[in-house]
Structure formats: C-alpha cells, structure tokens
Amino acid sequence: MSAEPQRQLLMDERAVTRTLARMAREIVELNAGVEALSLLGIQRRGVQLAERVADEIERAEGKRPPVGTLDITLYRDDLTAIGPRPILGETRLPEGGIDGRRLVIVDDVLYTGRTVRAALDELADFGRPDRIFLCVLVDRGGRELPIQPDVVGRVVQVRPGGRVEVLVPELDGRLAVELRGTEVTS
C-alpha cells in the first residue's frame, strides 16, 4: 500500500472559470478584436481549455474564433530518452487554416517551454501565421528555453519534483487545478 500522494487545490471550478473569462478578454484586447483570430489547443488538456476560451470570446464579442487541436508528440526532442507515447492525440488545424491568421496557442501548464518549442516547429511545417500568441492557464516557472507567455491565468513557483495538474470535465470529471507532490513556494 502506498500513501495518498500529497495534493493541494490551487484553483477550484469557479476560480478557473473566472480566470478563463479574463484570459479571453485579454486575448481580444491584445488582438484588438476577433479579426483573423484562431485558437489552437495543445493535446490533451489545452484542447478543452481552448474550447472554453473560445466560448468566453463568443459570449463577449458575439463571434466564436475557429478552434483547432495540435499534438506535438512527434516534434518532441526527447523520443530516445523517454520512449514513444503509444497514443497520439488528434491534430486538426482550425477552420480556415493558419496562413495569415493571428493564432493563439492554448496550453494548460507552461513549465520548461519545450512543448511550446515543439508546437512552434510543427506550426512552421503547416504554414505561416501572421502572429502567434501563447496563452497558458498556469505558469509554474522552471523554463529551460527563452519562451514567455502573452496571456497567463496564474503564476506559481513549483519545485521540480512537484506537478501542476489541470483537470477538465471532459477527461477528469471536474474543472480544477491541483498541485501534487510538493508545496507551492509563492
């Protein structure tokens, strides 16, 4: 028998909902409207967050930006080190493609920055957006690459052993952010 891993609630459903609504407003503000705006959720939980952000944008602006999904597994730089993931998520570009669009990459947690690096490489193979923004629900620090988000839900400093888990109803049954395995330092 193993002990229940240490678990701490960082954001409950209401907090996540409020934060996503604010992030949606910030995206519209950054882009000065919804013109040419498309969202791209990173598999897996970035996908559900992107859909929610799109819902919020629609509520505020009356127009829903196209949403796509991106699986970056095949663009990771650590296949030999960690081995393949047996199942990949779907990659489906937003309606209207990405050429000439103002594209918002949506992910759940920003940590080393390697996922975003992979996403940028993959997008370069698909086309040429006019502008790419990065939008994350949680920035946990610990970057290994010079990558910074444009829109952030919440910033927390988490030691390397800890894990920030974003839970979404479609996959986990509820909407929340939890911290596992360590304490938040700020």
Partner: peptide, 19 residues
C-alpha cells in the same frame, strides 16, 4: 517504426506530465 525506435514507452507517461 515509431514504437520500436523509442524503446522505453514505460517512461513516456511520466514525462508527458512534465509538459
């Protein structure tokens, strides 16, 4: 080819969580 090339998928799930 993909599954054979990596060799250690048991470590993949853990790494996935590290974003």
């Amino acid at each position: 080819l993909y599954l054979l090339a990596g060799g250690a998928p048991d470590r993949a799930e853990a790494a996935k969580a590290e974003g």
